[in-house]
Each structure stands twice: as C-alpha cells, then as structure tokens.
C-alpha cells in the first residue's frame, strides 16, 4: 500500500521547513452515517517527526483535527540530503511510518 504520509521538507541552510499531509478519516465519533448510526471515533493520536534519532516535533491529536490532517513546522540543525522519519499511531492501534529526504 502506498504510504498515507506525504511530506515535504526543505532546508534553506539553517532552518528546515516541514509540511506533512496524512490520509486519515479522523472520524470524530459525533457524526452519523446514512443509516443514522454513529460512526465510531477513529483518529490519529500521535504523530512524530524524528531527525537523527531525536524527536523534533510531536503532535498529540484529538478527533477535532480535520480529516486528512495537515501540519507545518520548522526546525534547526538539519542539512540537505538528511533523512526525516515520520510516524503516526491512531486510536485503533493502526500506524504508518515513512522517511523523507530533506531537500
């Protein structure tokens, strides 16, 4: 399966800007389906960005984060060509991991 994570990490020499888009339903648990039955909550709880074995950004998410979540942040100390590791875990225990090259 193709990765659910799309990342773009660009370095300007000093600061690396990271944008990530993840495919996930992020069901809040408050929405009903066409039969009027509640769709159970299903959302990413933790999203982690690791550089050089160290966390550079950790997100704790609740169901109020939009479907197919997007996040943007920046960090210092990385070089072009280095790897950035991204992983998430949802409330049902599913997870995904990917590695992006900083460009």
């Amino acid at each position: 399966m193709a990765s659910t994570i799309r990342v773009r990490a660009t370095s300007n020499g000093d600061i690396t800007e990271v944008q990530a888009l993840i495919q996930h339903p992020m069901d809040s648990g408050f929405v009903k389906d066409s039969k009027g039955e509640l769709i159970p909550a299903h959302f990413i709880q933790e999203l982690k960005f690791e550089y050089n074995g160290k966390d550079v950004f950790v997100a704790d998410w609740g169901p109020a984060v939009s479907k197919d979540p997007y996040v943007k942040f920046s960090f210092k100390g990385a070089k072009k060509g280095d790897d950035l590791k991204i992983s998430w875990v949802d409330n049902k225990g599913a997870s995904d991991t990917t590695t992006a090259k900083i460009s």
Binding site: G62, A64, S66
Partner: peptide, 20 residues
C-alpha cells in the same frame, strides 16, 4: 482540546494545522 504539540529544543515555536 483539539491538538497539542511538543516543541523540543531547536524547533521553531510556530505551528500551522487544520481543525474542526
């Protein structure tokens, strides 16, 4: 509470996201 982000040393204190 919608989202909470940890900002380690060396990470810029600036976050963009999309919420419901």
């Amino acid at each position: 509470l919608a989202a909470s982000y940890k900002i380690p040393d060396g990470t810029v204190p600036s976050v963009s996201n999309r919420l419901k």
